[in-house]
Design a protein around this nucleic acid. Sequence first.
DNA 1: AATATTTTGTGATATGTATCACTTTTTAGA
DNA 2: TCTAAAAAGTGATACATATCACAAAATATT
Lengths: 225, 225
Amino acid sequence: MKNECLNCACVMKSMQSLKSCQLEQLESNHAVVQFRKGDPIIKQGMFSTNVVFLKSGLVKIHITGPYHEQIVRLAKAPTYLGLPTTIGDKINQYSVTAVQDSEVCFIDLNIFKRVLEENKDFSSHIILELCKSELESYRRCANRTQKQTRGNLADVLLDLSENVFESAEFVLPISQSDIGNLVDASRESVNRLLSELMNDGIIRMEGRKIEILNKSSLQLISQNG
Amino acid sequence: MKNECLNCACVMKSMQSLKSCQLEQLESNHAVVQFRKGDPIIKQGMFSTNVVFLKSGLVKIHITGPYHEQIVRLAKAPTYLGLPTTIGDKINQYSVTAVQDSEVCFIDLNIFKRVLEENKDFSSHIILELCKSELESYRRCANRTQKQTRGNLADVLLDLSENVFESAEFVLPISQSDIGNLVDASRESVNRLLSELMNDGIIRMEGRKIEILNKSSLQLISQNG
DNA sequence: AATATTTTGTGATATGTATCACTTTTTAGA
DNA sequence: TCTAAAAAGTGATACATATCACAAAATATT
């Protein structure tokens, strides 16, 4: 129990810079909670005074758009969740929902802020993380809006395979309608395009189990729409 | 000359927290440069060791997408430019171009970082700014992708009127093809939709001079596509 | 095990926008 | 002031993708 934060610190660069006294501060002011697939972890519009750290699992980050809820991205552990939303104002500006069973650590915001002020390295790391995250969001948006659905779908499959599951074979963690949402397309289009990829022998599908048979083709589609 | 940074500090919340000795540090390590309309201020891919602060003027932030350059947003003074791109790695991750004559202050990155470490309030403000900026980029992306062109165009006009020029009458600072880029539409579509707005008596246009005649209609279009 | 609910699969049709092609107007440069 | 280049205006056509409408399959739920 006592070395939980230490464990996280071994994984996250931003936490490695913490001194043991600071780790203890976090230690005694955090709560680890289990979430089941489908459970909401952060809800947009809700008041929150905790920094949320995803220890294990996979989540979707989604935001209320002008017409419908939109999945911004998937995030896998270990990572902070809702840093910008928590630090900015205390009302969550987006939602986070578990798409796989997840383990989440809630850290008191004031303690977190105090540690942030006490430790320059830590705050540098957090700043760096925020910077990267913003740049990433620019890139993601440029992709979403410029590529057509086929290319974005290929990207999602490649991302799941390469970054999330690190395997050519994996089980889709979200429904086709969620995928549609993630690539700004209708559920039907996603379905049709997946069938197309199957027929072309680029992927194999059995239910939600997917195997990427021809990665280079998929990369080509990602590039050329 | 000597009180230039002080002037900025009067305007920017993040700089108000600076002590006079820290202001002096910035003072002696910055350079103010004038840019003409159309001049590039930050170029994606270039090496940079300066934090860039827009003292006056209006710029467009644009990024290389998979198919073409995309305008992420317009930014008006006073504001930092490319904070995330500069702090993150030193290679600019996006470009900034003046769309009106602008005055820009280049601050040495190391000095900026030192002040960031020395002054907790300052670093808190910067963190806050980065957080807000990331949230804003999520929202912008949700809008871009969910709304159709008519709605996004209405948004641009409203934004220019309300936030940038603070007047119902203003001169478009960018071309129709740039507007198209900003709302993910072709130049032709933008042109047609602008004509439509004119015909419907919602705006008046003479060259690039625009007057919003019916703001509430425009707001309705912004909401309902 | 039976029933309700969600997810998936697929055709037919509608539609917002891109693209092409060309002209006119405006702006910038020599 | 003349000329070249960029920007704006507008029709015709093409196309990716949404939407609608159902059926089949898979998952939850009681």
